[in-house]
Simulated scan of single mutants.
Amino acid sequence: MSTILYNPIHTSKPPEPPDPPDSPTVMEEDTPQPSSFREILLNKSIIVNHTYQQLATAGDEGVDTSPGPIILSIEGKERIYLPWKNSIIVKLFGRKISYNYLKTKLTELWRPIEPLILIDLGCDLFIAKFNKIENANKVLHEGPWFVVGNFLSVRRWEPTFVPQEATDSHTAIWVRLPQLHTEFYNQKILEKIRRKLGRLLKIDTYTSAALQGR
């Protein structure tokens, strides 16, 4: 027979269980995260513009915050113009062709020693951008040039060129003299004819040698 001794004097109240831990608090973000690609781009644009505004208004050294026109120094202009110094402005007369076709034809015609960079300026004007002066000299001095039977005007690139205001004060042209007597195929006679037209650039080889009568 088992006996259990029970002493009521030394008994104590069992400890109460500890309080449960605090429940986690969910903090709501002030700005919801963008959920679409469009929102991401818009938010990025806001951040970029905000950063730009901070830089523009910070007044840091080198940032011109004063009102009025932007003034470029002579050195600054030369640095900007330098990459364009060997460029040529061209215009095809009498016919409009696509940009890609014109670029292909000019590459075949000039055969530059570097890739041709052609820039559409509008108003049927284009810039042929060269880094090497050899290409620019070839285009300027070894013409005249014709693309699909139409005359191609070439001129040196000039700073602050505005296509809408461009005018042609000079152009190179071929002059044919139908049924000119062969005795007049003479350098002095041709130069006299030239004075009536403009500055003589070149005489066809067959004409100056009187090898062809047309």
Rank of each mutant, 00 (worst) to 15 (best):
I47E: 15
D22V: 03
D30L: 15
F161C: 01
N186V: 03
W110M: 05
K202Y: 12
T31E: 13
E142W: 01
V147C: 12
V162Q: 11
K196V: 02
W157A: 08
K138Y: 10
M1H: 10
W110N: 03
I47Y: 09
I88M: 10
T57G: 05
V90A: 00
Y99V: 00
L200F: 03
T11N: 10
S153A: 11
I173T: 01
L177S: 05
G59L: 02
E75S: 13
E16N: 11
I74R: 15
E28R: 04
P144T: 08
I46G: 02
E29G: 04
L118M: 15
S12C: 09
F130M: 05
G149F: 01
E108S: 13
T182Y: 14
G59W: 03
Y99L: 08
Q54T: 15
A128R: 00
P14H: 00
T205D: 10
I88S: 03
D30E: 10
T3C: 13
D19T: 04
P24A: 09
V162H: 04
K44T: 10
T167P: 00
D22C: 02
F184L: 15
I47N: 12
K85S: 08
Y52T: 05
T205V: 14
E165D: 13
L180W: 00
E61V: 09
I113Y: 04
L116F: 05
L200V: 07
P178R: 06
P144V: 06
A209E: 14
E183P: 00
P15C: 07
R155T: 11
P24K: 12
T3M: 12
Q164C: 02
V48W: 02
F93V: 02
L42S: 06
Q212C: 05
I88C: 12
A56F: 08
P67G: 05
L102P: 02
S2M: 05
L82G: 02
K132L: 01
D22N: 08
E165S: 10
L41H: 10
E16H: 10
V63G: 04
T25M: 08
N131T: 14
R199Y: 03
V139R: 00
P15M: 06
G94C: 01
I80P: 03
E28S: 07
T171L: 09
L72Y: 15
P178Q: 01
T171C: 06
P83F: 12
A56V: 02
M1C: 05
T107Y: 06
Y6D: 11
D60W: 03
I133D: 04
W84V: 01
Q187V: 12
L102V: 00
R199Q: 13
R155N: 09
L82F: 08
L55P: 00
I189V: 14
